[in-house]
Design a binder for these strands. Sequence first.
DNA 1: TTTTCAAGTATACGCTTGTTTACTATCGTG
DNA 2: CACGATAGTAAACAAGCGTATACTTGAAAA
Lengths: 188, 188
Amino acid sequence: MRLVTRDREATGERILAAAAELFAEHGYDQVTVRMIASAAGANVALVNRYFGSKANLFATVLITASTVTAAIEGDPAEMPSRLAEHVAHRLRTGASEPLVRMLDRAGTSPEIRAVLAARVETGLVDAISARLPGPQARERALLATVIILGAGSLRRLLGPEGLHDADLTVLEARLETAFRACLAPAGG
Amino acid sequence: MRLVTRDREATGERILAAAAELFAEHGYDQVTVRMIASAAGANVALVNRYFGSKANLFATVLITASTVTAAIEGDPAEMPSRLAEHVAHRLRTGASEPLVRMLDRAGTSPEIRAVLAARVETGLVDAISARLPGPQARERALLATVIILGAGSLRRLLGPEGLHDADLTVLEARLETAFRACLAPAGG
DNA sequence: TTTTCAAGTATACGCTTGTTTACTATCGTG
DNA sequence: CACGATAGTAAACAAGCGTATACTTGAAAA
């Protein structure tokens, strides 16, 4: 029979889930291990006991976290519209995939930045450029990443009310042309 | 550091300058008042004595900090190329105006976010949209702001070495088309 | 010179952080 | 049952933070 009350694995997963939720919502710096433990219904010491350190827990969360693959995968010709829809939806609702949320709420400490940078490389830049035919794939992917990250920054900075007076359908349409300009095989 | 004179105003300005430098370099959260005081060659207590609080000092720095006005002002038709050059130069060198650097290293505490958001509104979004003829000026300005902020995020995340293998002249050319797509009067 | 007052200093307060240490409680098993 | 392994707990650790206090110093006014 599975243990209900004293289950190390289950507790560890609760901690991991709580950490993913909180990191995505508030960013690395603003989340304390006590917040994580409280949200997971676990003792503070278990966070460090099971994951070694807060930074390591964050890295574990990042590995587990999904990416924007849904918008990236598929026909490259329609990637601009998918990305535009994804970003526009993000601007509209504030919701997004955990990875992206954590990216633009990036912690400022160097060790965290490093693991985040690696994740951006693989989860965004490389993932996008791998699907781009033609030359300058990396540069084009970098620019698309710029928009994705920038939208997160703007949303975080201005909040929902800061975008209320903006027409979001207009934003989405223009986002698509912007993505298209970034991703087009022919430059300039 | 030994002072030649006891000049409150000069000391205050040294603190302000040191704070501007450090905030732009490392972001609000990572900078301590002791770092500021040390860089300014002043005592720790003077920071709070002269500026009330760290948050208030940050706000003062933000007010003093210059903006990207040089790239924004001028013929709107050439704003895309000016912005692209500005952003590309930023990606290349890592140097940028204090305001923009502080923006994408935004602190995560709510009170800091508020003053930053206000500064983005006036210094970027409003400044750009005011110079845009035609409809949807705010939406177009928002998208340009997205790129500006996103470039800062990417640069911060990947660092100089993360962009070494990318052709920055290509990036600048594509940035210009992206800005043009964002800022063009005719949508879609 | 003496007085005076603000500039500057040294230090510590209260708090929060991540982390660790001893301890308790509960389980499977001999 | 008893016992040992271990999940979980309570508490404190050391360090760092912003901030406040009480003191010292130096230059100008008297």
